[in-house]
């Protein structure tokens, strides 16, 4: 009895995974090192050209109805003291559009054109949060607020453990 029941459950869990690949309607070059393509419009041509995008985005789910890959679920971070973060490195990550890009949404000191979508981070240190809380916030904010718009930088593999430690050191230094 148990093997059959377990078999049924296993099959049921495995079905989506079996079909889990890039959807057919994704704009990709499967043979290229960077698979993600960006369109290139050629004047006076009836054909649309494509060129490699600067980053491969195929690892994460698309908007395609054919995409059977699940989004990574909210993840509790495994944080341990000591912090061992470098605030200067953290600042560089926060300002870098290819890495943290925190400045796109948050207002941070000493930078023009900040964003206003996220929490104002001026004087963040004075809010007195623990390092563990701030780490979780950056690692995967969905654990703290299921409806957040903040990207789960750690859970999605966008930033490394050390990157996040550096960012925690940086925002915890803002007074």
């Amino acid at each position: 009895m148990r093997p059959i029941a377990l078999g049924a459950w296993a099959l049921c869990l495995a079905l989506p995974a079996l079909a889990a690949g890039l959807p057919e309607d994704a704009a990709v070059d499967p043979a290229a090192a960077i698979k993600t393509l960006s369109p290139k419009v050629v004047v006076n041509s009836g054909r649309l050209e494509w060129e490699p995008y600067r980053r491969d985005l195929t690892a994460w789910p698309t908007l395609s109805h054919l995409d059977r890959r699940s989004t990574i679920r909210p993840q509790q971070a495994a944080y341990s003291e000591p912090l061992n973060g470098d605030a200067a490195r953290g600042r560089a990550i926060a300002m870098d559009p290819a890495r943290g890009n925190c400045i796109a949404c948050h207002t941070l000191p000493g930078e023009d054109w900040p964003g206003s979508v996220g929490l104002l981070l001026l004087g963040y240190k004075r809010q007195g949060h623990t390092n563990a809380y701030v780490y979780q916030q950056i690692y995967d904010r969905r654990v703290l607020n299921p409806n957040t718009v903040m990207p789960p930088f750690g859970a999605f593999g966008v930033l490394s453990d050390q990157d996040i430690r550096d960012l925690v050191a940086y925002v915890q230094s803002l007074d």
Partner: peptide
């Protein structure tokens, strides 16, 4: 250049870090 609505969606996707789809896709 000249940009159709579906190409605009591709640009939106790329800017937001989402793998884009082909123009004319169901989504």
């Amino acid at each position: 250049q000249l940009q159709s609505l579906h190409l605009r969606m591709i640009e939106c996707n790329l800017d937001a870090g989402v793998q884009p789809l082909l123009p004319g896709s169901q989504a």
